[in-house]
Amino acid sequence: MASATAAGDAAPPDVRLGPSPLLEVSDLRVTFHSRAGNVYAVQGISFSIEPGQTLAIIGESGSGKTVSAQAMMAILPRTAHVTGSIRFNGEEMVGRSERELRDYRGRCVAMVFQNPERSLNPTMRVGSQIAEAITTHLPLDRKQAHERAIELLRMVRIPAPERRFYEYPHQLSGGMRQRVVIAIALACGPAVLIADEATTALDVTTQAQIMDLLLDLQEETGTALLMISHDLGLAASYAEDVIVMYAGKVVERAPTKELFAGVRMPYTQALLDAIPRIDTQPHVLLPVIGGRPPDLSVIPAGCPFAPRCPEVQQDCRDQAPPLKQHEPERWWACWHPYRKGAGQ
């Protein structure tokens, strides 16, 4: 517990970029209490999103990125204990009543989920599922909701929307289903759209189509887009800014271009090395990150990446490096960062 507070003290740097953050997260912590012990899934993260911005949160499974997204959507299970602050347009969302949060979900912040196979109700027509999202927040009658749903289906480029409205999820392909999920998310014109591994379950071609669609729609609607992914390559191609998470903490944050020009944090470098590249020799094994992902049931005294880090030194094990702004628009949490151009 003592180390938890130590990490907390080191935390909340103000990482806002523009003048008016739409969604502002500061020192967000999510802990799951269970019989086996506590799991510290998110250990004090802070960031903000401006209107129209595209931000990517990158990390491997267990880094806390999905839990953070769920916290922002206020859809965590009741076993989760959330502290810190999530402000939407300056209004605090943590600790709100369920009724107020219902109003917030879908209307202010909406989410596209990872698995289109499972994220739609198999026994409901897709049109009704979109219409439900509309009527939940907007004072429209059945007919108007129906029209708006068809409009949304058209907007996510689904052909023959009048017919598709009456179909069931299993009648659609994976890509089509994900389009429906996107239509649901956009139903009430949210200010922030969270895409949690939205293309992971899709094949590569569809992946690109869905990503392009998301960016087009972002342009059309002016919504901010928060991409959550394990795929640094994907973030590189689509996001303006990248946040890298490891073991429930933000370890590096930078504008995408700058990040690829020179990585500071060894973990980010390791992620980068794991991306297959067009100029990689065939039949050469891609480097993997050695060791195991961190155990989130204990908060380590030192840097959480220390056990797997190639650059590890004694001070890394003794004390966790805080996330600090070291250069304009660049933050990292590392005692021994790579210097510009190094580690490539």
């Binding site: 219902r102 979900r105 909406a110 739609l120 109700n121 439900e132 939940t136 999920v181 139903a187 009430c188």
Partner: peptide, 10 residues
């Protein structure tokens, strides 16, 4: 998951 989707709709 569809329950989560519905919750996310509000």
């Amino acid at each position: 998951d569809y329950v989560v989707t519905a919750r996310a709709k509000g």
